[in-house]
Design a protein around this nucleic acid. Structure first.
Length: 182
DNA sequence: ATTTACCGTGCTT
DNA sequence: AAGCACGGTAAAT
């Protein structure tokens, strides 16, 4: 999978950017009643939201020009559904990551987590050489813009049974179950 | 069992 | 420019 990164804050990254988006069914994967909102820039996949609506997309790409066109996003959506859960790393569409230097480090680390496995937030913190920045890792993971493909759901709490997930704890569990079963 | 300290980000003042 | 709230974990109380 090709990954393109850009250093930009959340508020600045939408500037002068055109994003095409579309909603697609993800149920064929065994994830019942699940829709993914796929968005692409000229470079590649920049956003994947689960059951989320454009509002979230707009909030995360302030100032960007958003164009709805399912025909454009369908190819990527179909490929994601086909490759999940084991082979997302074979995605032919490049993944485009816009974040701060810290966030980019965290997200790239997420890409190394194998399907069917989980790691803790402190593990990531150690991996990026900032063992004390566990909480910062937590917030960076939560700001991931390309769910599922950048597997933020594979990061779990160490001991406390708490489950945190931007699209809801239930979905996080469902994704992990789906990957384990595969 | 509760509190404290650590870090980066984004929102509010 | 400064302050506040978040989020996960280990260590100290």
């Amino acid at each position: 999978m090709k990954v393109i990164t850009h250093t930009a804050s959340r508020t600045a990254r939408g500037k002068n950017l055109t994003i095409v988006w579309g909603e697609h069914d993800f149920s064929a994967t065994g994830m019942k009643n699940t829709k993914i909102l796929v968005a692409v820039t000229a470079e590649g996949l920049c956003w994947l939201g689960i059951n989320c609506g454009v509002k979230k997309l707009r909030e995360n790409w302030k100032g960007a020009e958003l164009i709805e066109d399912k025909d454009v996003t369908a190819k990527a959506a179909r490929e994601i559904a086909r490759l999940w859960p084991q082979n997302l790393d074979k995605l032919s569409v490049p993944v485009v990551l816009y974040g701060t230097a810290f966030q980019l480090k965290v997200w790239k680390e997420l890409l190394k987590i194998k399907s069917g496995t989980t790691v803790t937030y402190s593990h990531i913190a150690r991996k990026i050489g900032k063992p004390a920045a566990v909480r910062a890792v937590g917030s960076a993971v939560g700001k991931n813009t390309v769910s599922i493909v950048v597997p933020c759901h594979r990061v779990v709490n160490k001991a406390s049974g708490k489950i945190n997930y931007g699209w809801g704890p239930t979905l996080k569990i469902a994704l992990l179950e789906g990957e384990k079963a595969a």
